[in-house]
Nucleic acid binder design. Structure first.
Length: 563
RNA sequence: UGGGGCGUAGCCAAGCGGUAAGGCAACGGGUUUUGAUCCCGUCAUACGCAGGUUCGAAUCCUGCCGCCCCAGCCA
């Protein structure tokens, strides 16, 4: 990271060196190549920021290329979702939207080129036989009996594959490299397989489809990619990537560079696992606010800026890491702290009657929308004889550090008066159901003579004026730090969602969808764009506020228990 | 046990032969009508381990150790 906060990771260093050396005429071109078989998650956000970010920084371009080489797994449904998510993150591919399938005709020609050069052959071994012939990690493989077919025969066979004369699995086109290579990717890797399935874009034009290594390398080379950035698991494939570039007449020579993928604690990033969560209804959909998908984060109230900041802060290296959730939370708090207006909402209400306040009177008090951004203005909140406070802001027998309400104690009602707890009302079961308090009229906020200071200030709403609103308190989806996804029952957090009916200040009743608020002393909340109705907002908790009391309380209580 | 990678603080991460940046977390203090924010300070005699080269090593060399990835007609 340099002084401006611009990352200077190893990939940027390589790209800068390539540019300085005049490679590719100084041109920088990258690509983000998602397979349209699922929704994008925060791991993809890292790839997107790296691919688009680096191109942008070097005055280059980045393509959004759908890697649609497997018609049995992919679906057009995901394409629009992916485009929306990339755009939402703040990146623009302009007219550089492509598909691997755009290059199918050229790829076919290049495969033929390989056959003509004696570097590819049609293999009639079965899937199982190919596996057996491949050898193991420690033993070399054996050559297929079909490996030495003539160029003419291979040409004809491949053409017949293309025409649909063979069934799926009957044969495959393989590169002829080295069955004894210590790198298994070089043991005559399959290039084309038969799939008699219509393709989302090319329909029934093809019944043979290129495999990843061939398709990806050629897409890069044909498209003009200069730097092909991918994750660590493809490091072993680089020799094959380069073998294609060395053996085929392609117009460009891209360079593949690998970096580590994002791992987040308490999160599962495998597409298969995410799909399972959706299909087995553990969550409400791909965009459930508990999902690590970009659409989930968006609905939770995360901003694209906060996610980009997060990606910037974690850096790009080849080291496998496991990022703490706290860092992500810190990023969204930083962002929302400056942009979110403040409001009062009582999540778990306890009634207070102000015994010396007239029953028929209402005072409208001015409250700042933001503590440090006065340009955001103010609003008024009604104060009356009956108010609601957070149940947790009263303790009958508190530890000494507790400076909110207790019997006989005083607390300031934010933007209003200091009140004193005169009486605790309980039901037959001994539960506190109401507090009777007195207020000190000389302590009104903003009066210029606010009287005494008290240690605690709490938020509140007028009982009569409060609106009721559904508030969804989201927490981490998994309760274990390193979920495997293998045993969802054991790993899922049973309280990842708690729905409460909160009492909110009147100004919140018509909060528009997708607006962010800080409910003072509670957290940041986002008006759900799916569940909200006009006049009936549903609030999603994006993240809690930092809470140093929670720690203190833990210590105080354990201390009390010991003492 | 073949091949490819990676080891700097609790979690990330700079460093590129000249004496360990920064962020998150934690801890201490200040401001505060949000126990928030903000501000100040503390936090690696130490870079997986052991040798070696050098006036000088996290950086170079050697040997160990640990972790990850690879045996789909998935990507």
């Amino acid at each position: 990271m340099d002084k401006e906060g611009t990352p200077t990771d190893f990939i940027r260093q390589i790209v800068a060196a390539d540019v300085a050396a005049g490679k590719n005429g100084g041109r920088v071109q990258t690509r983000f190549p998602p397979e349209p078989n699922g929704y994008l998650h925060i791991g993809h956000a890292k790839a997107i920021c790296v691919d688009f970010g680096i191109a942008e920084e070097f005055g280059g371009t980045c393509y959004l290329r759908f890697d649609d080489t497997n018609p049995t797994k992919e679906d057009e449904e995901y394409v629009e979702a992916i485009k929306r998510d990339v755009r939402w993150l703040g990146f623009d591919w302009g007219d550089r939207l492509t598909h691997a399938s755009d290059y199918f005709p050229q790829m076919y020609e290049l495969a033929v080129h390989l056959i003509r050069a004696g570097k590819a052959y049609v293999d009639h071994l079965s899937t199982e036989e190919i596996r057996e012939y491949r050898g193991t990690l420690t033993e070399p493989g054996r050559e297929s009996p079909y490996r030495n077919r003539s160029v003419e025969e291979n040409l004809e066979l491949f053409e017949r594959m293309r025409r649909g004369e063979f069934e799926e699995g009957e044969c495959v086109l393989r590169a002829k490299i080295d069955m004894a290579s210590p790198n298994i990717n070089l043991r005559d890797p399959p290039l084309y397989r038969i799939r008699k399935v219509p393709h989302q874009r090319t329909g029934t034009t093809w019944c043979i489809y290129p495999l990843y290594d061939f398709a990806h390398t050629l897409s890069d080379a044909l498209e003009g990619t200069t730097h092909s950035l991918c994750t660590l698991e493809f490091e072993d494939h680089r020799p094959l990537y380069e073998w294609f570039l060395d053996n085929l007449p392609v117009p460009h020579r891209p360079r593949q560079i690998e970096f580590s993928r994002l791992n987040l604690m308490y999160t599962q990033m495998s597409k298969r696992r995410l799909r399972q969560l959706v299909e087995e209804k553990h969550v409400e959909g791909w965009d459930d606010p508990r999902m690590p998908t970009l659409s989930g984060f968006r609905r939770r109230g995360y901003t694209p800026e906060s996610i980009r900041d997060f990606i910037r802060r974690i850096g790009v290296t080849k080291k496998e890491h496991m990022i703490e959730l706290g860092l992500l939370e810190s990023c969204i708090r930083d962002d929302l702290n400056v942009r979110a207006e403040r409001r009062f909402a009582v999540l778990d209400p306890l009634k207070i009657t102000i015994v010396n306040f007239p029953d028929d009177e209402v005072e409208w008090l001015e409250a700042a929308n933001h503590p440090s951004r006065s340009e955001l203005g103010t609003r008024t909140v009604p104060f009356s004889r009956e108010i609601l406070i957070e149940r947790s802001d009263f303790m009958e027998d508190p530890p000494k550090q507790f400076h909110r309400l207790k019997p006989g104690g005083e607390v300031r009602l934010r933007y209003a008066y200091i009140i004193k707890c005169e009486e605790v009302v309980k039901d037959a079961a001994g539960n506190v159901v109401e507090l009777k308090c007195s207020y000190d009229p000389t302590t009104r906020s903003g009066s210029g003579d606010e009287g005494r200071k008290v240690k605690g200030t709490i938020h509140w709403v007028s009982a009569r004026h409060a609106a009721r609103a559904e508030v969804r308190l989201y927490d981490r989806l998994f309760k274990v730090p390193f979920p495997t996804g293998e045993s969802l029952e054991d790993e899922l957090n049973p309280s990842s969602l708690e729905i409460v009916e909160a009492a909110v200040e009147p100004a919140l009743a018509d909060a528009p969808p997708e607006s962010h608020f800080q409910f003072e002393r509670n957290g940041y909340f986002f008006v759900d764009p799916v569940l909200s109705r006009p006049g009936k907002p549903v609030f999603n908790r994006t993240v809690t506020l930092r809470d140093s009391w929670a720690k203190l309380e833990k210590e105080a209580l354990s201390g009390a228990a010991q003492g």
